[in-house]
Design a protein around this nucleic acid. Structure first.
Lengths: 111, 111
DNA sequence: AGAAGATACCTCGTGTGACGAGGTAGAAAA
DNA sequence: TTTTCTACCTCGTCACACGAGGTATCTTCT
């Protein structure tokens, strides 16, 4: 039972952490990147996104800071922490296991 | 947004349907098969399993009947319906999409 | 004979993540 | 000036997973 319970639901956090691994970013941008990267196939609902930020920050996986005032609406930037990086590594491994498990159980035979 | 919300959580039903695609079966056996097929990496909690049966039957994706009395504890067998087969086909496709999406978002770079 | 363990079923209550709905506010476009 | 886009946030609800607890039969061990 190496796969934890929330694996079927908690990928939101991993996706966000993976984005922040590349560079600091903010909610709106992360969501646009997700949409782009999946060819429009997937995107977070805003409520989902901001709940996730809160959770991630509470868990110490990300930190946040207000972006410098420029033109346009204010932005809250997020940065991944060391703990966040470790979490992401664990999440990636968990995803690999999950994929193997579901392939074995769902796609094991056509039809 | 071709991926529905519950995809991150609702794989239980698809796994059960996939098992029933091979032959009628009952709770305990399905769970053992799942464990076996995944090398012990995954198994349902009983509560999860029986909640899923109830849900699947209510949705018309499976039907159930008591096994003939033999030695050992009584067994309730489940059989997949036509609607269940259609659902399974949809679930399989959804899983393929989910896998692509998560690969793109989580495993896109080794970090 | 009695206890323990495997087989096999079921329900209730709780926790949590996803998200619909609703709200704020500045900038750009119509 | 009204709408649209960027950008943030909260509250309440829903659905699924599952811990805990319970029933009953059959086999195995002592």
């Amino acid at each position: 039972m190496s796969i934890s319970a929330d694996i079927l639901r908690g990928h939101t956090d991993a996706i966000i952490l993976a984005q922040l691994m590349e560079r600091d970013s903010y909610g709106y941008e992360i969501n646009k990147n997700v949409s782009q990267r999946t060819g429009g196939a997937y995107g977070f609902k805003e409520a989902t996104l901001y709940t996730a930020f809160k959770r991630l920050e509470q868990n110490g996986f990300i930190t946040s800071y207000w972006g410098e005032d420029g033109p346009g609406a204010r932005r809250r930037y997020y940065a991944i922490t060391e703990a966040g990086m470790r979490q992401l590594a664990a999440d990636r491994q968990e995803w690999n296991e999950t994929r193997a498990v579901l392939d074995a159980l769902i796609s094991f035979k056509e039809g």
